[in-house]
Structures are given as C-alpha cells and as structure tokens.
C-alpha cells in the first residue's frame, strides 16, 4: 500500500517538474515574445497542475487531511493562465512588437488590414 501511495505521489510530481523545466528552456531559447508566451502560459500551467496534484495526494493519503483548496487553486489556474497569456501576446502585437523572421503566417495582421481597407 505504501509503495502504491508513493507512486501516486511521485508520478505527477515528476511530470510537473519536467514541464516546469521545459518552460524555462522555452523561455530562454524561443526567438520572439509570441512563442515565449506560448511556452510560458501552456507548459507552466501543466507543470503547476502536476505539482499541486501531487501535494494534494500527499496530504490526502499520507497525512489524511483532505484539502479542497488545492483543487480550487488548480481550477482557478486553468481558467486564468491561458487568458493572461492570450491578453499578453495580443497587447504585444498592438504595441508593435515584430514577430521573428521564422513566422510563416500572420492571421491577426491580415484581419487588421482587411478591416482598415473597408
């Protein structure tokens, strides 16, 4: 039973830590703010999900203390983190930050040009 609990606690923790490290690598290596926002908002959300789930299971199974606030925190993070990342990259576009030369398609720019022509 103890081995099962340890596996249940350790598996989400490993996933969360790996995703947090991937967030840091993406934030360092990507070329422009849009790709960096992609790395920061998506993978850090999954990373914090894994770590919070692991802490929730540890408090529930090992210390026998059911704590619903952690689940509430996971829910709140999953609602707000993508919204924040989207608002930030939209603000960066309207503030005039150029995408990198590797960008293939710029759909927001096409829409803005079509509205201005009307």
């Amino acid at each position: 039973m103890e081995i099962l609990i340890n596996i249940l606690v350790a598996l989400p923790m490993v996933v969360g830590v790996i995703f947090t490290l991937v967030t840091a690598i993406g934030l360092l290596r990507f070329p422009d703010p849009y790709t960096r926002a992609h790395a920061a908002s998506k993978s850090s959300t999954v990373g914090v999900l894994g770590i919070l789930l692991s802490v929730f299971l540890h408090f529930w199974l090992v210390e026998e203390h059911f704590n619903p606030r952690i689940l509430l925190g996971i829910l709140f993070l999953f609602i707000t983190a993508p919204v924040g990342g989207h608002m930030m990259s939209r603000a960066a576009y309207f503030a005039g930050v150029k995408p990198s030369e590797l960008t293939v398609k710029d759909e927001l720019g096409e829409d803005i040009r079509r509205i201005k022509e009307k």
Binding site: L27, R36, G85, V97
Partner: peptide, 21 residues
C-alpha cells in the same frame, strides 16, 4: 521588449505557487 519581461514575471508567479506547495 516589455512583453517579454511581463511573460517571464507571469511564469514566475505561476512557478512560485508550486514552490509554496
């Protein structure tokens, strides 16, 4: 640019949650 800094700050806030947990 400034959005880069804000994105890094947002990711730090999210990661600080896992540090507290």
């Amino acid at each position: 640019t400034a959005p880069d800094r804000v994105i890094a700050l947002d990711a730090m806030g999210v990661t600080l949650i896992s540090v507290v947990a």
